[in-house]
Design a protein around this nucleic acid. Sequence first.
DNA 1: GATTGTATCTCGCAA
DNA 2: TTGCGAGGTACAATC
Lengths: 251, 251
Amino acid sequence: MRMMIKPDLKEAVEQLKKAVSTKEFIALVCLCEADYVGRARSFLENGERLLIIKEDTSFLIHRPRGLEPVNWQPPPNYVGVTVKGDHIVLTVKRVRKPEKVVVRIHKVRSIFSGRLEDKGGFQMYLSEKEISEILRMHPELVEEGFRVTSAEAREKTGVVDIVGVDANNRRTIVEIKKDRAGLEAVRQLTRYAGGIGQGVRIVLLAPGVTEEAERMLRRNRMEFRRISMLDLTKILVRERSLEKSGIKKYL
Amino acid sequence: MRMMIKPDLKEAVEQLKKAVSTKEFIALVCLCEADYVGRARSFLENGERLLIIKEDTSFLIHRPRGLEPVNWQPPPNYVGVTVKGDHIVLTVKRVRKPEKVVVRIHKVRSIFSGRLEDKGGFQMYLSEKEISEILRMHPELVEEGFRVTSAEAREKTGVVDIVGVDANNRRTIVEIKKDRAGLEAVRQLTRYAGGIGQGVRIVLLAPGVTEEAERMLRRNRMEFRRISMLDLTKILVRERSLEKSGIKKYL
DNA sequence: GATTGTATCTCGCAA
DNA sequence: TTGCGAGGTACAATC
């Protein structure tokens, strides 16, 4: 692990080359310009940015504002470092596609490189899949008397989360959205419903629905039911072994 | 602009707080864990990562591998720094949405903060010459049945024109603008079209058009057609003879 | 490898 | 603010 503040060109190049060759994680604040050629073309004029080269050669250029990187290259990449006159030329070229970013680095403000130790697990909760799982275990949350007949989550025409029958033994398809359902969700559902016979109830389950989406639902004789993500989370927390997962401390 | 290597907790907190309060750009390599609660929930166990807080409060956590950040928050955010026992607690909470990331920082490997000077322009790029070339090769992109009889680039106005005939053998002049066409573009076009006889179609091709410009076009019986510079770029990249002037040279 | 669908998508634009 | 489409989308799953 090594770090330098305002190194001169020679020092910076040396560390950069070494770090690249040993595939260390690199975070470099510098004055630079960058060209991209590949699926499109772009040119980024001179300015101060943060460059990131990861251990798997993932590459990012971040400007001082905005969430998204201005330039990037998904791994794997060939990474080259050379010196041309008074600046460093960093070339990042994708292995499997004809794409590359060329960065001309004029001044290095700071450079960090090292191997980062990161074995920590990452877990997302309450994805649509997990919601579906909970509802399969607790069909009464969908509707009184509802029974699940098919645990199959996907069919060819689109995404279907739960198939079952309601209290009157009528076939019912339940689609789940974890966010407020918009037009796109309803469209997706409509596409699927096109291949379904008459007399089948179609229910959209979500924390909310936009006005237009609800209108579209009505036009297509489909139903909306509100569901509380908080309730589902409580069930998840109650029923899962949570010692190692860590979500417990939130609730 | 300030940077520290392996600072102790107190030093790190001090710099972090100051940098956050003055909205400096921050790049922090540290051992940390992170929780996200919002549209979904996630938990990231302990490990070494790069944290980025931008001048507009954009927030990113990058692991040592993978292009995408493992956690993030689009601006604007409230950013809070506190100390709890032996670790720093960084809270990044979105202003307009119920979402937050809480990071517990256990060890700081290095911290950079400062204001980055970045006024450099950024643009996707296609020269007029290239646009003209692509459309000559693919006249169907102008319109179904269109055939080119001549093409010429006027560099001063940033407009390319192509002369041809449409599917009905009617003479058609196509003007191309790289950027969204405003009133000025239409004025120039009108001036140019003034010397043209009646019965000739005039079509403006651009990525977009302002409302007023479109009205002016209609008044002058001219047409607008939307064209995607990105699509053209893709065609260029895909189909150009690579030996002479194409992408190959770059790659 | 090509296609398809999701995403804490983000972002810009328009109504 | 909400909806809608584009993106160098990236990425995983599927064919």
